[in-house]
Design a protein around this nucleic acid. Structure first.
Length: 437
DNA sequence: ACTCCACAGGAAAATTGGGGTA
DNA sequence: TACCCCAATTTTCCTGTGGAGT
């Protein structure tokens, strides 16, 4: 009888190694089909071994093209080879997206203990800057700053952040700071202003999308030593590779898919991974991504998304900014949140679109104005379910839904609807407790 | 051809919340 | 404690605009 505890602990006769090596943050020892790019990075950074500052690098490539892990891989090797001569700082610009937070993050990477850390808020920028400079200089070695998702910096504050970081490459006496920017936006350069562009873009490296057969090689390489020989059918690997190839050659997706397939097979007590496991893994994968995206949203974004779900449930053809906003306000009232202004909600809608949770397109409705037509991605029930997992939202009963009067063609009906809407708003006002400010 | 809706989205002001110094 | 400094976030104010109605 197979030991049931092996199954509980995630072990199985399918496995010979640790499934974690198919996880997202794992950096492998080898990058099949990325030899050219890696060699180029190595040759640029190699100047450190000759005590010369390396050029700045910009790396382009879609998600899952290996740019981030290849870069980290190379910098890890460099640290091994160059020892204390070099310091590598990795900053994800999606999380640290202001000049202040990035400089602090850079400076704090030199701290040996938390009490040396610079606070995350409150200090003048140039002081942070000077502190960073003095730390870099006293360190007196090469500093390599990896800026992942560097395009987010430009998007959010017009390149100011980038400019202040680039200053570090000049002002360091001896000029020992280099920057590696990573982006998936190929038009990234055009959005830069000239002074930043000329300083930043000294070398660029393109990570081309993997094709299906390359993905297959990668998968085969990654499962070596993890899975018992023959535990995964060839066609299942091909399927994972094919799905990854469809998504702009996304290796991360292909690997995740394979990992989940294995998990599915283990849980289902299957002896091997077949196409069927991959297909159900794909469904699970989509759900996981959706759940992760929804549950990690900031509160206000959740409220807006909830409003989008509710609005679409009422009538998907009427999903426009104005309706969404009115319903958002009702929801805020019901749940006791302070509602933000339409301008901010407009931005939040754009943010939700960036996350792929909704899609929108601006459309002119002629007499009825110009607005965004919005649609929730994924199934409404799932999104709703994940949203209501938040205990602050779980009290949501359905909310008062504002009366619809836009696009009502008959002017008489429109007039009627408008006044009814107005009545309801007055009711709402009377019901609501007056704000104390 | 002209109007005007219902917003989009840029820019600047105002608010918020943290930190330093005296 | 009082006060001013800072960056981040949100609000206020604003100009711009595609096309159905007229």
């Amino acid at each position: 009888m197979p030991n049931p505890f092996f199954e509980v602990s995630g072990k199985s006769e399918l496995l010979t190694g640790d499934l974690a090596s198919l996880g997202g943050s794992f950096i492998p020892e080898n990058f099949p089909h990325r030899e050219v790019q890696i060699e180029k990075i190595v040759s640029i950074l190699g100047s450190i071994m000759r005590d010369t500052r390396p050029s700045n690098i910009i790396i382009y490539g879609k998600t899952g093209s290996g740019k981030t892990s290849a870069t980290r891989y190379v910098s890890r090797m460099l640290s091994e080879a160059a020892g204390s001569k070099v310091k590598v700082v990795y900053v994800n610009c999606q999380i640290f997206d202001s000049p202040y937070s990035i400089l602090v993050e850079m400076a704090n990477s030199f701290s040996r203990s938390t009490d040396e850390n610079i606070p995350e808020l409150g200090l003048p920028l140039d002081r942070i800057y000077n502190e960073l400079m003095s730390r870099v200089n006293s360190f007196n070695r090469f500093l390599i700053v990896i800026l992942d998702e560097i395009d987010k910096l430009v998007l959010k504050n017009g390149g100011d952040a980038l400019y202040s970081i680039l200053k570090t490459t000049d002002d360091t006496y001896g000029g020992k700071t280099s920057i590696i920017g990573i982006t998936n936006d190929t038009g990234f350069q055009e959005s830069l202003d000239a002074r930043v562009k000329s300083r930043l873009n000294q070398e660029s490296i393109l990570f081309t999308p993997y094709n299906a057969s390359e993905l297959k090689d990668i998968l085969n390489y990654r499962i070596k030593g993890v899975v018992r020989d023959g535990a995964i059918e060839d066609s299942a690997i091909n399927l994972c590779a094919a799905i990854g190839a469809q998504e702009h050659g996304d290796a991360r997706k292909a690997i995740d898919l394979l990992r989940i397939s294995i998990e599915v097979a283990i849980r289902g007590k299957k002896g091997k991974v077949t196409d069927a496991e991959v297909y159900s893994a794909r469904d699970k994968f989509e759900m996981d991504v959706l759940k992760e995206a929804v549950t990690t949203l900031p509160m206000q974004s959740k409220l807006v998304l909830l409003s989008a779900v509710v609005t679409q449930e009422i009538d998907s053809s009427l999903m426009v900014t104005g309706e969404l906003y009115e319903n958002y306000r009702s929801i805020c009232t019901e749940l006791g949140f302070q509602a933000l202004t339409p301008r901010r909600i407009s931005d939040i809608i754009s943010e939700l679109e960036d996350f792929g949770l909704i899609s929108s397109s601006v459309k002119s409705m002629g007499r009825y104005g110009r607005t965004r037509i919005i649609q929730v991605m994924g199934s409404l029930e799932s999104v709703r379910k994940y949203l209501l997992e938040d205990e602050d939202l779980s009290m949501f009963r359905g909310g008062k839904i504002t009366r619809q009067y836009r696009f009502v063609t008959d002017p008489k009906d429109q007039q009627k609807a408008r006044s009814e809407d107005l009545m309801q708003k007055l009711d709402d006002l009377r019901e609501s407790v007056p704000d104390d400010h």
